[in-house]
Write a protein that binds this DNA or RNA. Structure first.
Lengths: 217, 217
DNA sequence: TCAAAAGTGTTGATATTACACCCATGC
DNA sequence: GCATGGGTGTAATATCAACACTTTTGA
């Protein structure tokens, strides 16, 4: 199981990578992952790895691919289930674990050469994320619990690499009624204090259950 | 690897199932599938199984899930990659193979109890198909090479379990310009002979590459 | 008072919906 | 000539796209 962990930092979409400290790939960078334990459901594996690395639980995780070419890993036949995870930049502390020499967020547009086919996995994960974001507001998972409309818009712009018209975007989002106005303002900004919103998960889940999609462009 | 093979027969969406003839699940119905061979890329497995069962090649196949709960198979730990395949009702001949006692198309809404979690796999495959069909006209893969607009509309209605307005549907599809008018008519029908179309794959692929989606409702 | 981002409305173009009748064919 | 599905147009409504200025705040 390998995990493409996405995070937003400023105007950049980042992926969490680790540097191996032992074995045949010592010193090389890679996606976090692990062999599927025989006593653990496959779908539990991403949560276990994420807990170890970031201390975070209840993170948004989704399977997006399975890689099974014969020679994708050099020394043995390995089939990997590839998940992506979206984590909020609010608070977490990176713990590299025993087998890692280093752990680092890297810009999605500037990933070094990784082991095996991990660059390919990241590319596919990114495509899967973009595809999903075009019909569902999954990007809220990357934002703090409370966020401004500008942050929300920038999240779309950063991930999808597009420019959105602010007035039209706000009109659309507010009309859809999936954000809750907290009536609080962001403090300590050297300009007009923006309003803070939270995501209305219940409302959105109801819409989604009815087959509704939130299409941005 | 297990495979949910979809086909259209009349107004019904069907799934191809086989009845095992040996082993611990003798006599029980199941999805076609096989253990992943060590000398074969995982993604080649569905084609191999499909070739055996139907004689068809170059069939539309896509991964939609991976099932990996500890006890999903009773006697050992098995993780399965689940693919769906869309096959045209034009012509194929079912060959049940050596290990199967019988092979049969079954209505998606009337599937008997299958081995392990295969009912669950079918449900998930059906959901994946519906989701995909709502933005891409993958359903053409279920139709003959030449088809009428009515067949095309019925395909959407059958799979998505909805009713579409014929005039609006035709207007939309023809405006999108992804069907090619063959200028041929269906013969031997006891009513006004309908026009036949083929799918304009090149045109559609161009649109798709630009990020276009064909949304039906 | 200035810099920086927040916030807001209107208009024209486009797309979507709702809806009912005539047409062509084989029997 | 009749039964069967094939094929078509229009008007009302909703959605989308383009576009620029005023407001608030802290420094």
């Amino acid at each position: 199981m390998d995990c493409v962990i996405f995070g937003l930092e400023g105007d950049e979409l980042k992926v969490l990578l680790i540097q191996h400290d032992e074995g045949p790939v010592e010193g090389q960078w890679a996606l976090p992952g692990d062999y599927v334990r025989f006593d653990i459901d496959l779908e539990e594996m991403p949560s276990i790895v994420l807990k170890q690395l970031t201390g975070l639980e209840n993170v948004f995780v989704e399977l997006f691919d399975v890689l099974g070419k014969i020679n994708r890993v050099t020394h043995q036949r390995v089939i990997t289930a590839a998940y992506f995870a979206l984590i909020s930049t609010e608070k977490y502390e990176l713990k590299k674990g025993l087998e890692a020499r280093d752990i680092k967020w890297m810009d999605i547009h500037n990933i070094p050469k990784l082991i095996y086919d991990h660059n390919e996995i990241i590319n596919r994960g990114y495509e899967a994320l973009k595809l999903k974001l075009r019909r569902e507001p999954v990007g809220v998972e990357l934002l703090p619990r409370q966020f401004t409309l500008t942050q929300f818009q920038k999240m779309y712009e950063t991930i999808l690499d597009i420019k959105l018209d602010t007035r039209n975007f706000r009109k659309k989002i507010l009309k859809e009624d999936i954000l809750i106005d907290t009536n609080q303002k962001e403090l300590n900004v050297p300009y007009r204090a923006p309003n803070l919103y939270t995501f209305n998960a219940e409302k959105y889940d109801t819409l989604k259950a009815k087959g509704y999609f939130l299409n941005i462009y």
